[in-house]
Every structure is written in C-alpha cells, then in structure tokens.
Design a protein around this nucleic acid. Sequence first.
DNA 1: AACAGGAGCAACCGCACCACA
DNA 2: ATGTGGTGCGGTTGCTCCTGT
Length: 336
Amino acid sequence: MGRSPCCDENGLKKGPWTPEEDQKLVEHIQKHGHGSWRALPKLAGLNRCGKSCRLRWTNYLRPDIKRGKFSPEEEQTILHLHSILGNKWSAIATHLPGRTDNEIKNFWNTHLKKKLIQMGFDPMTHQPRTDLVSTLPYLLALANMTQLMDHNHQSFDEQAVQLAKLQYLNYLLQSSNNPLCMTNSYDQNALTNMEAFSLLNSISNVKENLGVDFSQMDTQTSLFSHDGNNMASSQPLHHPSNMLPHFLDPQVSFSSQSCLNNNEQGQGTNNFAISQRDHTGDESSWINIPSINPPNAIGTSGDASSSTSSYGGAGPSPYNWSELFFEDPTTMHELS
DNA sequence: AACAGGAGCAACCGCACCACA
DNA sequence: ATGTGGTGCGGTTGCTCCTGT
C-alpha cells in the first residue's frame, strides 16, 4: 500500500511542546473535541501533525491523567498484568486509571525490569533465571541468613524451626521449577511464590525479633534490592514478584564440584556449602546449610546431578567460587 | 566548580489493524 | 476484493536533570 507517514510533511514542528501549543490544543479539544486527529492541527492553529497532537493529548494533557510516582499497589498490578499480558501496555493501562500506556512502559523499562533482573527473574517470562550471576546474590543471602542464626545463639528448637522453614522453602522453590509441577498459569506460580515469600518473611521477622540488622544483610548481598524510595525498600517482601527467586535451584546452587570439594567444614556431610566473605572483610569462610540439599544433588562429589546443570556435573566447576564470592554478583564489583 | 555518566521521561517512528468507499 | 485514511500500539530516541567524581 505504501502509505506515507502522517508527519513527513515539510514545515511541521517536531520536538517538545511549548506551553502555548499545549494551551491551543487543550482549548480546541475542550471546545470541539478532538474529532479527526489529522484535521485537528489546522483547526486548532497548530503547526503539528495530528499524530503528535494525539500523543500529546493522550499522554500528557488529558485532564484525567494521574501524575506522580506509582504506588506499590500500582506497581504490583503492573507486575501481575505484565506476567499475563506481556508488553501490552495499553491493555495494562486500562487497569490503571489515570495512567497512560507510555508512562507504564517507561516505568517498566526504567524501574520494574531492572528490579526483576536484580532479583533474579527474567523480566519477560517472570520466571526465575538460571544463570549463575543472577543466582549468586541469593546464595549469599542464604548464607548470611544461616550465619546470623548461628551468631544469635538460638535455641535448638528455634534453629530447628528456621531450618525446617528453609527446607520447606527449598521444597517450594524446587517445585516451582520442576517441569512436572509447573503450569502455564500465572496464579499457580504466584501462589507458590507467595507461599515461599511469606515463609521468608516469617524468617525475616524472627531475625528482627532477635535484633538482627537486616539492612546490613541487604547491603551485603542485594537480597532485598534497595533502590531508594520504591517498594523494595519500604515493603521488601510483600509481593510474589519480589520474591526471592530459586536461590536453591538445584541446577545452580548445589552442583558445583569445586564448591563441595573445597568444603572444609562440611567434609563427609551432605551439607550445602558456599563461600563468602564476612562483614569485616576477612577472608572467605565456608558456611554449611544442613539438610536443604535437593536430593539429587546431595553430597559427595560423585553424585551431583550433571545432566541439566550448566555449572556442576562431573569435573571441576568452570568457576572459581571462592574468588567469585569476593564480588557482588549483581555488579561484579568487590564487596565493600 | 566543572565534567561525565546514568536515569528518567516525553516524544517520535514505523507498523498493524480496522472501517469504509 | 482492494485501496485508503484514521487510529492505536510498541519500540526507540534524544533531551534534561541528577548524581558522583
């Protein structure tokens, strides 16, 4: 058909709108409605193409537009709808009164996408990522969590409860990644994620009751992303899409031969062990997290699952774990 | 104080869809 | 059945402001 774009006429202004142009457009639409957008610029006395006028009106000048920061509820709605609809911004916008598709799209690209990536989720599929870099922060976080337990002299019962929760969390997360358990339903995953999420939250609450400074943990591990005044900082654990991803993913977390082989404290046990540097900056140490190994990856260096793992299996790990853990995996900068 | 780099956002561009002649 | 106009949508660009050095 080869139709020409509407804006290629010579002499039509492009770029930012002036207050005078805005006023002309608003006054015209308030008096006459927009009618045909193509005809509108001439009728309104604007040296713009109709498309530019429509965009300016719908994205900026419309009186019912809600401006300002997105609320946590709006953020959750966007995350939820995006997981269902994908990049159907206009469809998403219909569920957020006063918000434009353009605004939502920008908010997604500048905030939510990064947040999901930082938390180990694929922003397109909303499924946990399985690459190493995205998973390391959560391994570190888990290590910290366990270390904190030890350092706070919990009773045996308290520790048992916490470990049981961790174990159950591991089970949930494994289930959510298990093809046999997964469905295409967002809600199915959301339920699982939410369950795991509230579980983590309860663990966090226990920590806080014991006087543990979780913010310290956050900055060390990026477990809960802190990026200013958004939901992540004010409500770190309230939405399934903010949930920690599968930091216990058997394909990633438990299959490193070198990890297990270097485990000095865990020799002869089936404990999962990872390396980290403590808050004082002293050399890395091994931390054992008993009993949360996925069965198919437990234990001795010979039986780690190798069929699906990118990082494990027979032979040495392609990564030098003890070196890797001296860096913040999200930024690959040295931990401060 | 000056500069560089990054973040945020408004606006543009090209394509697709639909209605209508 | 086909061509055209109108509109909407999603991706991308580029400008402005902010922050860190």
